[in-house]
Design a protein around this nucleic acid. Structure first.
Length: 310
RNA sequence: GGUCGGUUGGAUGAGAGGCUUAGUCAACGGUCUGCAAAACCGUCUACACCCGUUCGAAUCGGGUACCGACCU
């Protein structure tokens, strides 16, 4: 364990469209390491354009992990990512003193850098049972039940958010214990150094990049990609900005123009959410990239790495 | 010049004297420990203007302005 402390996990994060991908390729080369993607959508196959995956060329330049590896119908979670990413990091520790994690999925990053509680993964049957229960009995009934089974969690949970209520009940049902009993909420120690670097842009600038990128996605043939996965639209992996809006077009509900506007808007909202989340994390070293080219960004990061080595 | 109709928050759009805040969209702020690009919450309280009726008017009456339709 101790030897691993010579290792550093550099985490490059920031809101969508801020410019992580291009920089990450350069950084990976500089650090002679692979890229560990922390992106809950790029991890899936088939959805390439709409998730702004790195290009084929970029993927060839540097080895990427956790991109394009799961079928769309595969269940995955931040907790599973924690397990998988830690295993990978540990296996590469001997050959790569620096490792680079890149992405914007807040919970995935937190799961690896801060840890997530060990809560059993819910079995399909339980999940299905609870889904039916929710549909049949409604949110209020589930809330009432949770109040009996886990009053402590009931007090603090958002009673209108069915995802949280349902999950807590799933735990109670499957384990016979309270959800609270699993919620330790403790930061886990990692056997390596962690350096979080956040990329930041002025809002106007970021939003302009988002709008441009959405238009580019459309030009690159996003609509065809969407058409291919349309039959499986109910999958969670496809409950994703860019796809859900264009499904509406195929349904005949929305005009294409409106869908594109919504994609831009929803991407902006997503970016805002990411920024809100990251704002709480005091470990992040922020770099304002508005006026910096890639070279200058690399320079700043190099400086950070050096000052952090001591 | 005349007759009739309209004027509601950033946009759209209900409401026809009190049940204080329509709704939707946009914008903005936030929550978050298991599908998180998910799910959820909060803020933005307007009735063109003036005078009047009324305990009380976005809602009724009169006038002013602007817009529209029709008439001479």
């Amino acid at each position: 364990m101790a030897t691993l402390m010579n290792n550093t996990l550099v985490v490059l994060l920031g809101p969508t469209a801020v410019g992580k991908t291009e920089l990450s390729i350069r950084l990976a080369k500089l650090l002679s390491c692979d890229i560990i993607s922390a992106d809950s959508r790029q991890i899936y196959k088939e959805i390439d354009i709409g998730t702004a995956k790195p290009t084929k060329e970029e993927l060839q330049e540097v080895k990427h992990h956790f991109i394009d590896v799961l079928p769309l119908d595969q269940y995955y979670s931040a907790a599973q990512y924690e397990t998988d990413a830690l295993a990978l990091i540990s296996s590469q520790a001997a050959t790569q003193p620096y490792q680079l994690m890149v992405g914007g999925s807040m919970m995935y990053i937190d799961a690896v850098t801060k840890g997530i509680d060990d809560i059993p993964t819910i079995e399909d049957e339980t999940r299905e049972e609870m889904r039916r229960k929710f549909e049949k009995e409604g949110l209020d009934a589930l809330c009432a039940e949770l109040r009996l089974l886990d009053p402590e969690y009931y007090d603090l949970v958002d009673k209108k958010n069915h995802k949280r209520i349902v999950h807590a009940l799933e735990i109670c049902y499957q384990t016979g214990r309270t959800y609270t009993s699993f919620r330790k909420n403790q930061t886990k120690e990692r056997p390596f150094r962690i350096l979080k670097i956040g990329l930041r842009r002025e809002r106007e600038n970021l939003f302009a990049r988002i709008n441009t990128r959405v238009d580019q996605m459309m030009q690159q043939g996003l609509m065809d990609e969407v058409r291919r996965v349309y039959p499986r639209r109910e999958l969670n992996s496809l409950n994703t900005v860019g796809y859900k809006e264009l499904f509406k077009v195929l349904d005949g509900e929305w005009e294409l123009k409106m869908a594109v506007e919504r994609m831009k808007k929803n991407t902006r909202v997503y970016a805002k959410k990411q920024m809100t989340w990251f704002a709480h994390d005091t470990d992040i070293h922020w770099i304002d990239v508005d006026k910096l080219n890639i070279e200058q960004q690399i320079q700043q990061i190099s400086a950070l790495l050096e000052s952090n080595t001591e």
